[in-house]
Design a protein around this nucleic acid. Structure first.
Lengths: 336, 336
DNA sequence: CTAATATTTGACAACGTTGTCAATAAGTGG
DNA sequence: CCACTTATTGACAACGTTGTCAAATATTAG
């Protein structure tokens, strides 16, 4: 690789002068500048970041540790949001994907710290608790889409309660009084928080909470994979004496299966039954008919917020809840 | 940040000795080593990669340029595959996500080259032609999931023809003779190649190609967003005089919509009609019933292959077709 | 045309490492 | 205990930059 000295030689000036040109120092004679620029172009010179970094002790790199973030549809938006803000500050992201083992994580952290990252984002691919390595505390760090119980770290997580509330509220506003809820695996934070939101919305509307209306759509992690299927769950609710007229589904896949179950029974979403859900899977939600009204996770916004907080962090350690956005399609409406 | 000299001072040795300990040079007295190690731990010293890099002129970084890779479900597997292989060689990935504008791409390349990346992966999120910046040729580079017409670059793309062939073959083997095909946007490489595979399978089985059986499931980029919907396309085929008994769908979303259209007409997949598709969207394919038989894009494998080629590249410039894998569920079978 | 001042340029050190080579300390054989 | 070999340690340069400061050159005023 060609260095500043070679450029200097070619241009017949000292290497310091080249440095000045490269850094746009105004105190260079126009004629000299031209000569240097020419040499730079001729040799295809590019300043070496490592050398620069040694001088000014700035790596310009933010570490992004994801436990599998990128495998999850659209959780990648988190990365994009983060990258966008980083770019604004002229920083780059170094992304490391760790398996869930301790050693991988340790190796990742070491590598990032050796590279003198100026900040660290730890993101998980679904909202959950994580164990963060102590070393993270050495640089400005944030947790995104995950939280650590006893660590003093700024944290950005989706507001699951609000999402559950809004998803339910949407149906209540359409006049529904008996609303079924197919929940996620109860080991997942989202499952319990969304249920909380569901109950809150009911309570607020003066509708009594009926536990019979809440069915689990997928098994706990430790149970056999095939417990009640979503179809069965939906079917069970539809056979209740007081049949629900609306459903809040734990995720769009559930909603998709619910649509099928409805179809099988001759029920038509938008006419006989209303439904809302979570995730806004672009693969599914717009393709159902009628289009599925669903709560979109604020991945992009969390990524942005997290990165912003790295740059502004005055030891701010708060946990910030980022709201879901309501993607209104047709499925929550009943037109007749 | 603490440097090697401070450690040396603390341990009462020269900084060179510390360097030796850090690099596991055997020519250090046990007692000295212990003392140094202690100082390292006490001060929490970490070697500075930038400085190392200046000495040995090795960045240990591979650039990964993705035009939106991470936004696409499971295309992230490409990243994971690449990272896995890079790790094996003790390299890290620097991921840059570029918007599709020329300046963003230029900025990304510049930044990576300034950081002296030892290789470059250019990945696109769906199989298409791209324009690669000339600078890429300065370091070992590969194209993944995309190709550049007149560049001498190693290229790894999914074998769309094979996928189309296999998806069709699966149905032919079940005895189907009239097989509908709902194609993707014809501007997409995948659409035309998969159709080619479809025709090849038919030809091989001695079935005449009937253009009436092939319908476009989504509009060209330049047309209005709402042309024929997939439901309409399926409906049209089902109203043909010689009704197809099987369908090859351009992607899993199409298949999902086809299932709905079938359901509406009282046709049951697995009994009355068979279907195969592409993409293996884990959000959809397993959730349909019966489970959707679909061709999985070899994202992970392409990532691995690409990275491998960076390390072994002896100016190898070939285009390698990576096979899809057949994910057999139930939808291609007819049990009666 | 000279002195004073402003502009442009260059020498050198430093950033934190590691490679080279010489200096010192520790063993070994007689 | 001495000469000699071997093991251990340290001094110094170099990697490619930029900051500091002094030197050289150009410009301006008188």
């Amino acid at each position: 690789m060609v260095s500043i000295k070679q450029v200097a030689e070619q241009a017949g000036v000292s290497f310091k002068t080249v440095s000045r040109v490269v850094n746009k120092d105004p105190n260079v004679r126009e004629e000299t500048r031209a000569r240097v620029l020419e040499a730079i172009a001729a040799l295809n010179y590019r300043p070496n970041r490592a050398a620069r970094m040694m001088r000014n002790q700035e790596s310009g790199v933010i570490g992004f540790i994801s436990d599998e973030v990128v495998t999850q549809p659209y959780a990648g938006d988190l990365l994009i949001g983060a990258q966008q803000v980083a770019s604004l500050h002229d920083k780059v992201l170094m992304v490391v994907n760790i398996e869930n083992d301790r050693v991988g994580r340790q190796r990742a952290i070491d590598m990032l710290l050796e590279r003198r990252v100026e900040g660290l984002v730890y993101a998980s691919y679904y909202h959950k608790e994580v164990q963060v390595p102590q070393e993270m505390l050495q640089v400005p760090s944030v947790l995104v889409n995950c939280y650590a119980e006893n660590e003093a770290l700024a944290t950005f997580i989706p507001d699951e309660v609000q999402a559950g509330y809004d998803a339910t509220r949407l149906l209540i506003e359409q006049g529904h009084k008996i609303i079924g809820h197919i929940t996620l695996n109860p080991d997942i934070v989202a499952a319990v928080k969304r249920l909380e939101g569901y109950r809150k919305a009911l309570a607020e509307a003066g509708i009594a909470y009926d536990p019979l209306l809440v069915v689990q759509g997928e098994p706990r992690f430790d149970e056999a994979a095939n417990s009640v299927s979503v179809e069965q769950a939906v079917a069970a609710l539809l056979e209740l004496k007081h049949q629900p007229t609306a459903f809040v589904c734990g995720k769009d896949e559930f909603a998709m299966q619910a649509y099928f179950e409805f179809a099988k029974r001759g029920l038509q979403v938008g006419r006989d039954i209303a439904i809302t859900s979570f995730d806004n899977q672009r693969m599914i939600a717009p393709g159902l008919s009628p289009g599925l009204t669903t709560m979109a996770l604020p991945h992009f916004e969390m990524g942005q917020a997290a990165m912003n907080s790295i740059f502004n962090q005055g030891g701010d350690i708060a946990t910030r809840l980022i709201p879901f956005s309501v993607i209104e399609r047709q499925s929550h409406l009943l037109k007749n």
